[in-house]
Design a protein around this nucleic acid. Structure first.
Lengths: 243, 243
DNA sequence: GCGATATATTACCCGCGGGTAAGAAAAAGT
DNA sequence: ACTTTTTCTTACCCGCGGGTAATATATCGC
């Protein structure tokens, strides 16, 4: 019985059936629900009871997988961090002129901001974490910021980017991207891919060395529909469905 | 004794002296301290006891001026809103080409983000407010967004701005500005004026119709040191001192 | 001075929510 | 089938913090 493929987003704790999945899967399920709830209600308003309820379990069961609420928060953030790190690693490995790398990063980051774990990078408050975790967060953010600046600086060096202050330019670009995590919603007018395409263009055309002739034909953004970022992304679908 | 001119940022409730100031001044003092604490610790971590303590009073005394914690939050936000609205009104009154108005708005908004009440516009979570207040917040944000879009659209119409999607461009610009409210700190490397100058340039050069030849000489940002935005800003110093 | 009003204090309530203890129910080992 | 181990539930603790009641102290009009 029960040959249904489990709706992919469903809880592994089916109301009273086969509870036999691996521990890690359950842990992941907790995180998926938690990040969703934390984003939806805000960390402080979302209670562990809420999280448990959505999983068809009770609060204390969560403590089999996590030691505290803030550890769950950190784990969510941590998954998002992995995604960014992978993206950066892939770009670094790829090489190319500074501007090209910057654009890849902008594109990948923009798409990330439209995912739950990606958004958690910018919507969670580090002050809710322990000092130890907070240090890690600070370091990770610094690293991301560094990537933006390095690509810009590299671009200036290799001539693909106009002279500018890499620090403030990075702030401007990253700020714009981070904000996506605050306003993007699945039922919005633009798809993540469209947003990423558009932002990649807009945020880099200002500092690109070559004027770049931005689509004289019209403001249509659906030019680069070809799934954009090739590798890196498909590894761990943050929650494939329509949401 | 005690002829000191009260350090300007100090509490009107001096430990045990002349408590005789006007009600509104005290209310304002509550808000000044509250917004500071809410930003510094986060709304949920900051307790009313904390607020009261910094004012040399006790928690229940606050209830002479506000009915609840979230009302204080709203009042803080509301002050920030006034500042933006004033800025927009001044720009609208001034007229000029779309790009010029957009730049004025960017500049004013950037400087606002470096103030407590300005930052509260983007760092407070509307979900902490009552539904009624939340609606007001939504409307206000929509209005601000509208201004950005309108200036861009006007710029496209009058030829000062290149063709682009006003909606996404506004998102990109506003996002970048909003993010200032998250990273700016008084002891940072750049002053609000410098940041505002730099962002005004960077965020609009991409969509400006005239290439604008951005300072070929070098990445020095102090070019536009001439107090930038003329009127509108000096009216109500958000807290003049060095902070 | 004296009563009325505004403003502050002390002492308290209480609900919410993170976290825990003890034990039931599955799963797994043998 | 039995024990052992893991996982989950029921029932609870308790501290924090928003909010209130009752009362005291200024302040002001007279």
């Amino acid at each position: 019985m029960d040959s249904r493929p489990t709706p992919a987003d469903a809880s592994p704790w089916l109301p009273f059936e086969n509870r036999r999945r691996a521990r890690d899967e359950k842990r992941d399920a907790v995180l998926r629900v938690a990040v969703q709830l934390f984003l939806e209600q805000g960390y402080h308003r979302a209670t562990l009871n809420d999280v448990a309820e959505r999983l068809n379990i009770t609060k204390p069961a969560l403590y089999n997988y996590f030691r505290s609420k803030d550890e769950i928060l950190y784990a969510c953030w941590s998954l998002g961090r992995e995604l960014v790190d992978d993206a950066i690693a892939a770009i670094d490995a790829g090489g190319g002129p500074g501007l090209a790398r910057l654009r890849k990063l902008v594109h990948a980051y923009a798409e990330l901001m439209a995912t739950d774990f990606g958004a958690s990078l910018v919507r969670f408050d580090p002050r809710d974490l322990t000092e130890a975790h907070r240090r890690i967060v600070r370091a990770a953010k610094k690293k991301i910021d560094r990537s933006f600046r390095d690509y810009i600086a590299a671009g200036i060096a290799d001539g693909s980017v106009r002279r500018c202050d890499p620090k403030l330019s990075a702030f401007a670009i990253a700020g714009s991207l981070n904000w996506i995590g605050h306003w993007y919603q699945r039922d919005g007018a633009s798809s993540p891919a469209e947003i990423a395409d558009e932002f990649t263009l807009r945020l880099t055309e200002g500092i690109a060395a070559t004027p770049d002739k931005p689509a004289r034909g019209g403001p249509k953004t659906k030019t680069a529909r070809k799934a954009s970022a090739p590798g890196k992304q498909g590894r761990k679908p943050p929650r494939g469905g329509t949401g």
